[in-house]
Amino acid sequence: MNESPASSSETPMVRFERVSKRYGALTVLDQLDLDVASGEKVAIIGPSGSGKTTVLRVLMALERIDDGVIHIDGEPLTHMPQGDGLVPADARHLRKMRSHIGMVFQHFNLFPHMSAVQNCMEAPMSVLGLGKEEAHTRAAELLTMVGLADKLDHHPAQLSGGQQQRVAIARALAMRPRVMLFDEVTSALDPELCGEVLNVIRELGSAHQLTMLMVTHQMGFAREFADRVCFFDAGRIAEQGSPEELFGNPQHERTQQFLRAVMEAI
């Protein structure tokens, strides 16, 4: 049930080491340290502007960090070894490291001119070099898994928000990532469509040894699904622990405030 966070003996799947990210004068990540064990499911919660989405974006290398190092399975993502030290990663290294990671966006970001199955085939074909048939088989399997076997040839505009987001999950999985990032994946959906997307994530979590990081506002889902919950405030982890600890008995004053506000809103 409630596995303890990364034991120190094995290499963590993801490691943030004193990572800082600034936009001008604004510090969004402030010397962040975070280890995620292989197969661990981590939920990231916190007020808006606390830097939680940035954690995912720098991990996906969509943005550069200003300080610190990020490791994936022991290998630096943002830097690469050269001589005795580390130098900032070049494009080639970034692409290699990115191949371990998949990301699902708040606004889906599906390619509107391609059908569902084409969305899932594009990258496997052009990046992994899969043949057309193999890519199609893989895409069809994944779309079936997310419950869209009958929507293969539909274009995004013909799908509901929940269906689009499930295509987006299948598209990311088609690259066989070891780490999956979910960035507020239900925030842009009507409430009645959230369930189908969360169900897919739930199944994914139980069936695979995927490492998952999710930024979410769905406290109920975080509590039920995550192994560990991190509460972010002002670019740092203000408090973390098992869902029972964090939701049941928050220690930090900011955590208490935040959870109270969230509960009141429901």
Binding site: A61, E122, A172
Partner: peptide
């Protein structure tokens, strides 16, 4: 911008992204 980011997350290269994702739209 989300289209560029999604392509980036799928590891598509810059030229490929331009040709397959951005230009058709």
């Amino acid at each position: 911008r989300g289209q560029w980011e999604a392509a980036s997350a799928l590891n598509l290269g810059r030229f490929r992204t331009l040709r397959r994702i951005v230009l058709p739209q």
